[in-house]
Amino acid sequence: QTDGQTERVNQCLEAYLRCAVHSCPGNWSKWLALAEYWYNTSFHSSLGKTPFEVIYGHLPREFGVTQVDTCTVPDLAAWLQERQV
């Protein structure tokens, strides 16, 4: 038996993994690290920050890419630009 907060976390992770593994259901374990990253860098209204910010005191770097203007992959550049806002 768990509390409501744990149930909510489980729902979020389940939804994320369901979307992530839709095309390759046999490889779900390969997505766990990204699921953890997604969860720890998502804003939590109860914290007013991301879990990463609460633990480390700053926002995480986005996969080591620090200069959006030098990124040659358009989709990645757009995603990085959105994350800067």
Rank of each mutant, 00 (worst) to 15 (best):
Q1H: 15
T2Q: 04
T2P: 02
T2K: 06
D3P: 05
D3M: 04
G4E: 08
G4K: 08
G4R: 09
Q5G: 13
R8M: 01
R8V: 01
V9H: 08
Q11S: 10
Q11R: 05
Q11H: 11
E14S: 07
E14D: 08
A15T: 10
Y16K: 04
L17E: 00
L17V: 03
L17G: 05
R18I: 00
C19W: 01
A20E: 00
A20C: 01
V21K: 03
V21W: 01
H22N: 08
S23D: 10
S23Y: 14
C24A: 06
C24P: 01
C24T: 00
C24F: 01
P25L: 01
P25Y: 04
G26S: 04
G26H: 05
N27D: 12
W28H: 02
W28A: 00
W28G: 00
W28L: 00
W28K: 02
W28E: 00
S29C: 09
K30W: 13
W31M: 01
W31F: 03
W31C: 00
L32G: 07
A35R: 01
E36A: 15
E36D: 13
Y37N: 07
Y37C: 10
Y37V: 11
W38D: 13
W38C: 12
Y39G: 13
N40P: 09
N40I: 00
T41L: 08
T41Q: 08
H44Q: 05
S45K: 10
S46Q: 09
L47C: 03
L47G: 04
L47I: 02
L47D: 01
G48Y: 06
T50D: 02
P51D: 12
P51L: 07
V54R: 14
V54H: 15
V54D: 05
I55M: 02
I55E: 07
I55W: 08
Y56F: 06
G57D: 07
G57Y: 03
G57V: 04
H58N: 14
H58G: 14
L59C: 13
L59W: 15
P60G: 08
P60D: 09
R61E: 15
R61A: 12
R61V: 06
F63I: 11
F63T: 12
G64A: 15
G64K: 12
T66L: 11
Q67I: 05
Q67P: 03
V68L: 00
D69G: 11
D69H: 12
C71Y: 03
C71N: 03
C71R: 02
T72K: 07
V73W: 12
V73D: 15
D75I: 12
D75F: 12
D75K: 15
L76P: 07
A77D: 03
A77H: 11
A78I: 07
A78P: 08
W79F: 13
L80C: 09
L80R: 08
L80P: 11
Q81W: 12
Q81D: 14
Q81C: 09
Q81L: 13
R83D: 11
R83L: 12
R83K: 14
V85W: 05
